[in-house]
Amino acid sequence: MIEEPFARGTTFFHRRDARVKLIPALAITLILALSSSFLVTGTGCILTGVLLTLSRPDPGLLLRRICSVNIFTLFLWFTLPLTYGGTKTLPFFFLDLSLDGIRVATLITLKTNGILFCFLALLATSTVASLGHGLEKLGMPRKLTFLLLFSYRQLFVIHQEYLRLQRAARLRGFIPANSLHTYRTYSHLFGMTLVKSWNRAERVHQAMVLRGFNGTLIPLNQPELRREDYLFLATILLISFLLAAIPFFC
């Protein structure tokens, strides 16, 4: 089952409207992604780290998320210093590490984690449903919002169908091995998952049509933007503006 563990909570961040989190998240992401200055990415990483701390996520869960993302940056640390080239090198045992390579790997690590912190603090504190509705209110086409919300919903259904079939196979003594029988069984499993999810989706669609659905999802909670929301938006946008302005002052 796909959970949204970070969206559970009652901090100031969780109570903010999705719209005032989406806009600054986009701003900070753009700044961090496009900047090549250590000062900007480093400060950004610290600032988003502070935001993340304020949203009080579960530490164990947070660590697992950060680790799983940083497995990718670890690959860069293994490869870039050895392959990047350049004139300046750093002797390390019998290897000559490229200083430029280390620079780039650091930069990418800072960017990745800054953006990750920003998303965890701002976006993960809302449910996908409220983010979808928030995006729609910000002017994203209705069809795209619908696609986002329903792809997300359908993931659960497909996952459940797959688990059910897999359980059925296991209960009848199926043990995966490197054999043609295993491959054939898995191809049947995937095929059946697809067919069953399709049928299921059709029935869910019928249920929706029967209840008056005509293409527009109307959210039950339609929160008004409050003063705190505007204040939050202004503060974070100001921070991102300052972040973007750093290279012009230093």
């Binding site: 869910v204 249920a207 659905f213």
Partner: peptide, 17 residues
């Protein structure tokens, strides 16, 4: 097949909305 919203209230309110 009939329940597709995350919470009970949202699902029951889907029709009236």
């Amino acid at each position: 097949d009939q329940l597709f919203s995350p919470t009970v209230l949202e699902d029951v309110a889907f029709g009236p909305l």
